[in-house]
Computed example of a mutant assay.
Amino acid sequence: MRPRRALVTGGNRGIGRAIAAGLVAQGHAVTITARTQPDGQEAAEALGCQYMLTDLSNPETMMGVLQPPEGFDILINNAGILPRGSLLENPEGYFDCMAVMVNAPFLLIQALAPGMVDRRWGRIVNISSDWGSFAEGLHGPNAYGVAKAALNALTMTLPRDLPAGVKVNAMCPGWVQTRMGGAGATRTPEDAADTAVWLANLPDDGPTGGFFRDRKPLNW
């Protein structure tokens, strides 16, 4: 596979950083997003990639990634949040979850997919969760599961609007040792990143509109 231009949201730490590292190791030209300059600069220098300052909860800060000069061939919608409390006790958590994990991915896909279509090649990977699976019961605090279910629905729907050369899939990283997952989690960021990197490099006959963990299909 020849090198491509890749964008990884929230790529300065955790799963996103491991995904970015995996793509850099394959020779792709990677750009990560970060909410602060120190975080973005440190990660970019360590990874050997570029970074953009972007707060996915605020579309006004996203213009650099929504209108890149050359576009991106690979989009990894990784950034996520985990608000506390119930939906009714903390309704702001609902709006924050939807902004970061549904609205921002859609805006990025809407902006970047036309370039992928023109180049006849693109890979979109939505980092979701089995907490967003109806088959698993929509677990998680506040609106986390609701947002991931909406992201899954977006993943299922988009292939009907995209040509075969532009593939969009979702994946569940599992319980990962990150700031969000905690030190007691059973998987490393590198374990979690493997499926995302695989989906970012799918061959022409690879799947689209699917939901995966450890490279195997999951139930919606």
Rank of each mutant, 00 (worst) to 15 (best):
R123L: 09
R5W: 05
E136T: 06
W220K: 15
G132M: 03
G182H: 06
A29Q: 14
V146G: 00
N169Q: 13
I19G: 04
F211S: 00
L158Q: 04
L202N: 08
G181S: 11
V166F: 01
I15A: 12
T188F: 15
V176C: 06
N142V: 03
A147P: 07
V176T: 14
A18I: 15
D55W: 07
A147H: 07
T157Q: 04
S133D: 10
G165W: 02
D191A: 09
T188G: 14
N152M: 01
T36R: 13
L108K: 11
A79W: 07
N58M: 10
L75A: 01
F106E: 12
A170I: 00
T186V: 09
M98F: 10
L151F: 03
D130N: 04
G184V: 13
T9V: 13
A200D: 09
N90S: 01
D204Q: 15
P141N: 12
D55R: 03
N103F: 00
A18F: 06
G122K: 05
V125K: 08
F134R: 08
Q26D: 05
T178Y: 14
S128R: 00
R17W: 02
S133E: 06
T157S: 11
A149T: 13
I32Q: 03
V24N: 08
G27E: 06
A150I: 02
A192H: 04
W198A: 05
T61R: 14
G209Y: 05
L154W: 05
W220G: 13
W131K: 07
I19E: 01
M180H: 08
E60Q: 15
Q177Y: 06
P163I: 11
Q26M: 12
G48E: 10
V197Y: 03
C97H: 03
M98P: 05
G80T: 07
E190R: 09
T61L: 13
H139F: 08
W220S: 14
P217K: 08
T178H: 11
T195L: 12
P83E: 09
Q110D: 12
M62A: 15
Q41V: 05
F134G: 00
A196E: 09
P3Y: 07
M101E: 12
E42W: 00
I81C: 01
R35G: 12
A99I: 08
A104D: 11
P159K: 11
N90T: 03
D161N: 03
F134K: 00
V168I: 15
M98W: 08
G137Q: 09
C49I: 09
V125A: 02
E45D: 13
G40A: 12
P203K: 05
V146H: 04
G10P: 10
K216W: 13
T36L: 05
C172F: 03
